[in-house]
């Protein structure tokens, strides 16, 4: 299986300049790999830096030291220090990211929110809307809500809209930050299905799952971030 993400010696320290310059070390010297067709679950205590690592993989957080390389258009590309244009291109084509919260844009309909990643790749509106509709249906978002902006939806509905948006493109790398956090059993199992499908389609999935059941259902590997620098990477039997 091809390596899709290769992290070496990754260190993240937050420096709060306006709090007297105090530093908050999160993790240091992390080595990590994610492979094609595998789902790697990031595991660890609250505050161990799972989300920070995930966000670093999306170039949302800037590493303090170390290297993050991802396979983009067939070649390993270094994210740290890459020009913005390259990062934007990688996000458009290679890496999908589903955060815990949906960033709502006023006046944009649910259908358009979900279809947007496809539209940005140049897919026509009819096809993009059709695909968005299929996903929303699977995730039990009633059709009468599709034309509304998701701003007034419940937390669980917003989360599902966010998931639909993340899964609408078959990204080679898919990063998931607690996608099932506020979902009921029925919808959580749909997300598990979606993750398995993505994996079967060859995606490298990296995720944080609070729920043990979901975690066990999808994990091929568990990457444990322990306090200090005792991280562990082990396959699930």
């Amino acid at each position: 299986m091809q390596t899709m993400i290769e992290v070496e010696g990754l260190t993240k320290v937050f420096t709060l300049h306006n709090q007297g310059g105090i530093t908050l070390p999160v993790f240091s010297g992390i080595d990590f790999r994610a492979r094609q067709g595998e789902c790697t679950v990031l595991f660890g205590e609250s505050g161990s830096g799972k989300s920070t690592l995930l966000r670093s993989l999306y170039a949302n957080y800037l590493p303090s030291r170390g290297s993050i390389r991802v396979r983009h258009r067939g070649e390993m590309v270094e994210l740290t220090g890459a020009p913005s244009q390259t990062l934007l291109e990688i996000r458009r084509e290679t890496i999908g990211y589903v955060s815990q919260f949906l960033r709502v844009i006023p006046r944009v309909s649910t259908l358009d929110v979900v279809a947007q990643p496809l539209r940005e790749r140049g897919v026509d509106q009819v096809t993009a809307h059709q695909r968005a509709g299929e996903l929303l249906e699977r995730l039990h978002i009633p059709q009468r809500l599709w034309s509304l902006p998701p701003g007034t939806f419940s937390g669980g509905e917003q989360q599902r809209v966010n998931i639909a948006r993340g899964f609408i493109v078959d990204y080679p790398i898919l990063l998931l930050d607690e996608p099932t956090a506020s979902l009921d059993q029925r919808n959580a199992s749909i997300v598990v299905e979606l993750i398995r499908e993505a994996r079967q389609n060859g995606s490298a999935v990296v995720g944080i799952f609070h729920d043990a059941e979901v975690r066990n259902a999808v994990a091929d590997r568990i990457f444990e971030i322990a306090p200090g620098d005792k991280t562990q990477d082990k396959a699930v039997s």
Binding site: L16, R55, N60
Partner: peptide, 22 residues
């Protein structure tokens, strides 16, 4: 400071950007 919008706003590096965001 320069960078991707979400990176600058979510993980600001410079003291002034941190002040601005906070």
């Amino acid at each position: 400071e320069t960078g991707l919008t979400d990176q600058v706003l979510d993980d600001p590096q410079h003291a002034y950007t941190q002040l601005l965001v906070s």
